[in-house]
């Protein structure tokens, strides 16, 4: 179970906003290149440097949760974020409404 999604879904943005349009009208092609690179490289670093245990960890956490709640694997995302001095493990689970189950 690798990391899903592309850079676009990671950014959660469309191609270009109106703001981007006005901003880029005065930027040179080199600075546009730099902006694109910065975003791309940050994304690739975060996915390449993922620890190898992450998929296994996700699988096991899911099994534990499934003992109590009826969720499937699509309802869960796991992300490890690294900043200068801390690492955060972000776990996102969409739970079904328990009153209806």
């Amino acid at each position: 179970m690798g990391r899903k999604g592309c850079l676009g879904s990671y950014l959660g943005a469309g191609d270009m906003s109106l703001l981007d349009y006005f901003r880029s009208s005065k930027t040179s092609s080199a600075s546009l290149a730099k902006e694109r690179l910065q975003i791309l490289v940050a994304y690739e670093r975060s996915s390449v440097n993922q620890p190898p245990y992450l998929p296994q960890l996700q699988q096991e956490i899911l099994l534990v949760i499934q003992k109590y709640v009826n969720v499937n694997c699509d309802a869960m995302t796991i992300k490890l974020e690294q900043s200068d001095n801390q690492e955060t493990l972000e776990l996102n689970i969409v739970l079904p409404d328990f009153r209806r189950v």
Binding site: A30, L37, Q38
Partner: peptide
């Protein structure tokens, strides 16, 4: 080409 903004500069590359 760097000066005219066509090419990434050394600083641009080093920022990354």
């Amino acid at each position: 080409r760097v000066k005219s903004g066509e090419m990434l500069s050394l600083d641009d590359v080093q920022d990354i």
